[in-house]
Simulated assay, not measured.
Amino acid sequence: MKFEKLRTSKFNHWVIIHLRYLVGFAFFPSGLVKLMGNRFTRISTDNPIGYFFEALYQSGFYWNFLGLAQISAGILLMTQRYATLGALMFLAILTNIWIITISLSFKGTWIITSLMMIAVLVLLIWDKHKLLPIFNYNKTSIIKEYPDPALVWIITGIVYAVSCIALYMLDPVKGNTYEKWFSVILGAGILLTFVFSNYKAYKNRKQVLSP
């Protein structure tokens, strides 16, 4: 089967793993802004876009809840092990965002959200064997099992998630010398983690998948 051939390709696994990192990270900036109770944009309320976001901001806890949902979806994706649940959450949230960017005529933003929609659909298709039993109601289903990502990718995702959240909390641009240096260390840690995990996968292809 074509799907099985694609699903067992180690290179495809590597692409999907990093696509999860990328898509998961995409929700962090806007999600953290909402979770911390800050405004997402400074556009005037005379503009429909500014008016819309100001109304959401004034909703209070709902604004924080949106941020929490985005961060949760991003973290689940980056853990790799719970990436299917993260992709489902991401699809629900992103579909809403995608429709908003189209209906309010965001300049160029709808293109970005459309690409994100394609990416999350690819992730769901990748894990379709986990989702098909949902639609096979009252039918006996044989679920094909594929190896999970190796431990190195799970740890890498956790490092990325924690580091990105910490970098936002530190605010290296406006922070003191201590925060700036700690931000540099975190940035270096992200870079070293990326280099190490990919070097390990390149050196030993079996590291892409667990036994």
Rank of each mutant, 00 (worst) to 15 (best):
L186S: 09
N138M: 10
F65Q: 01
T156L: 05
S59Y: 08
I155S: 12
V173G: 00
L123P: 10
I99W: 07
G50F: 12
W181D: 04
I100L: 14
S72W: 01
T95P: 02
L170H: 07
I49Y: 00
P48D: 02
W98E: 05
I165K: 03
L104C: 12
W181N: 12
F182R: 07
L123D: 12
N47V: 11
I71F: 07
D46L: 05
E179T: 07
N47M: 06
A150I: 01
Y160V: 10
L167M: 08
A166G: 03
I143T: 15
Y51K: 15
I134M: 15
I97W: 00
I99P: 04
L115N: 00
Q80E: 15
I112M: 07
G86P: 06
N64T: 04
W98K: 06
T84C: 07
L66F: 13
F182A: 14
A92Y: 05
Y146W: 13
F61D: 01
H129M: 09
M78P: 06
D171S: 01
F65I: 07
L167I: 01
I71A: 14
S163P: 05
A69D: 11
L88N: 05
S183G: 08
T156S: 15
L167Q: 01
A119P: 08
G67K: 10
G74P: 09
D127Y: 11
K130P: 03
Y146R: 10
L123R: 05
A161G: 05
E179K: 10
V173F: 12
Q58L: 12
I142Y: 15
A55F: 12
L124D: 12
Q70I: 02
L131H: 08
I143L: 13
R81G: 13
A119L: 02
I49Q: 13
A69G: 10
L115C: 02
F90T: 14
T156Y: 02
V162E: 00
I118W: 08
I158F: 04
K139W: 07
W110L: 04
W98L: 04
I134D: 08
M117F: 09
T156H: 12
L76E: 10
